[in-house]
Design a protein around this nucleic acid. Sequence first.
RNA 1: GCGGAAGUGGCGGAAUGGCAGACGCGCUAGCCUCAGGAGCUAGUCCGGGCAACCGGGUGGAGGUUCGAGUCCUCUCUUCCGCACCA
Length: 766
Amino acid sequence: MADYTPQSIEQKWQARWTASGAFEVEVDRSRPKFYCLEMFAYPSGHAHVGHVRNYMIGDIVARLKRMQGFNVLHPFGWDAFGLPAENAAIKNKLHPETWTLANIAHMKGQLQRLGISYAWGREIATCLPDYYHWNQWLFTRMLEKDIAYRRRSSVNWCPSCLTVLANEQVIDGACWRCGTQVTTRELEQWFLRITQYADELLDATAGLSAWPEKVLTMQQNWIGRSTGVQATFPLVDPVGPLASGETTRGLEIFTTRIDTIYGATFVLLAPEHPLVDAYLAGPEHAAKREVVAKFRAQDRLARMSGEVEKEGVDTGRFAINPFTAERVPIWVANFVLADYGTGAIMAVPFGDQRDFEFAKKYGLPIRAIVAPAEGDSVDPKAVDPATMSEAFAGYGRSIDSGPFSGLPSKDAWQKMADHAEAKGIGTRSTQYRLKDWGISRQRYWGTPIPVVHCPVDGIVAVPDEQLPVELPKVKEFTGQGDSPLAHIADWVNVSCPKCGGPARRETDTMDTFVDSSWYFYRFCDPKNNALPFSPEAVRYWGPVDFYSGGVEHAILHLIYSRFFCRVFRDLGFVDHDEPFARLLTQGMVLKDGHVMSKSKGNVVDPDDMIQKYGADALRLYVMFVAPPEKEVEWNDSGLEGSFRFLARVWRAVEPLSETLRGASPASFAGLDLDDAHRALRRKTHQTIERVSGDLYPRAHLNTGIAALMELVNELYAFTDKIGVTKQGRLTGVELGPATRAVLAECLEALVLMLSPFAPHMAEELW
RNA sequence: GCGGAAGUGGCGGAAUGGCAGACGCGCUAGCCUCAGGAGCUAGUCCGGGCAACCGGGUGGAGGUUCGAGUCCUCUCUUCCGCACCA
């Protein structure tokens, strides 16, 4: 009997799979398709077992679906643009492309040594012009449809390094490299109008029944729709013109609690609100301006450090509450956000905890406007402005609210909104937390934004036939300056595509999340050089049936992709609304209680484990240790256990394979089965049912493996009885036809069911 | 603060409302062996009993049900996400 030696078996089969292109697929309308995808990888250098767990999960599903007769698309590629490559370039004086391509080569080898069944013929890397060409093409379409637009926005700027910083490079408000306090700079930047799809993106989450609840909730919160009323508080001292050029007679506020407007005893402006500068312009306000300037600087730090004391500045001016007709003071408050709603709020200290604290601190009036509902056992002192210690944010019955007094709060809400609309005071309005997506990056290693700035024609898109705008080769990376591309004169200076006059290229590049927002479509038609993909190819393959990856992409990547899907749909390129039918978020692999990372020195390299136990044992262990969604702690003896199980399967199957060749019967009719025969058959068939059910769509891979282990235990009990030795040899016993048939059926089923998990060994035994 | 998920042996974890702890790790004993860090067999929630078996047991307290780890209410704890969103 040959021992189980995984290394030689695995190399043999991997070579065959590669040579025969075993996992390459074409459109075949006679067969049902299955698109199995794992989130593509950032080529950081070496994949550890935490990374490859995801690829194993996808591979089990892909191999299972192939066995079930589906035409399975299972591709892989590289999310290859991004900051780490540029940083490595600065540090090692290498070109980012050199660094990136070397990493890709190594990681691809790692995946192949794991036996992941990818259609490598469809491999893509987003940093190659073949791919980013279509980012540019799509950007141009978005420009035409007014989905891409330009406006001023602030970026992080390190005054010492003289460079723009990504948010990740700002640590506690300071530059990651030199520790200098980071400031902001206003730059013209490109945005994608994702908010145009906010309602659809939110409402459609209800239909994503095969997504984790957690991810849907996170997306819903991120989009953050709230419905309310936008109302105008007339200004006692109209101002104008403002920086924006217009005159202002009234202050626009947004509220979700219009029913409490009779309790709005003051209004608050965000420090960045244009009225602030208008009201605090004179030299007598220098001190107040200084406080406001402090608020503006606070904003960025507040996010990092958490709690900031609520503070305000009195502008000394007044607005008119349109419902009470009373004068209410206008204050500036550090906790009011400029980029949500209108950047100004009506403050109702009775009903809002923040306003309550603010009113207490500055001695502003508190007026009770809601009484607790009947049956609410609320201490009267808790709703008496004289004695209450916190705001009463509940609903109940309106009081002291003019003609609306006595109404239940919810009815008052509608009536007051109606009143506001009838009197021209305000309108019902919906606000979102979701912001348009700023995609400009002042970086080299990304997709050049395909526009030209012409002094005559303004912004001109680079014509399709001149795409791709390729990244110029840069010799040296210093990390200094704004956009690295701005310093390459012969790349920047072009003639305007419209008038032919001298013009300059856009020197910003795109956020790398653009690359990953549609790559799953490119896989359907990766060699297309006329379009990002043919609509026919995606009509067959799309949408992705099974998508797995880390939960850290629950918000950004998975919302952007849903957004791009709809853009492509509206361009007539895809006919579905959602790109990913089923989503699985795999748990991380911890070592010594921590996430694996190079800096912690706790990474487990799959190649080390393959060398010791083989890829099959590694795959089996990682799938068996816990359900795929769960976080797991790495454990060497568990891996040994999986190796032992495979060796046990090997000893059960390999010695009998010659003896039982051709023994699998077409029918069991006429065979004389005893109780032991029947018991093994029953177990075999029960296992088939359990494993089939566990693997998909449940993806309970761990219990599927447990079922196989039970079958093997039963099999050993059976072979013991019929005289197979512990070493797997038959002790001269002649096997009867019933025994041969039952054994052959069991062993074949076992090998087949094992093959998604341990494909190399299964192939060899088969 | 808001939202989500989860609490089951020494450990990882199983249980369409129907025998709690499958399967594995670890541990114990036996067999095999020159040897075992290989392999095989048996045992391994707690209390009682030689045993068949009996009683208890899924963070805590109630409830629904013939029957609850599972469903409902309250509560405690942990992890995760968002966090001054008006």
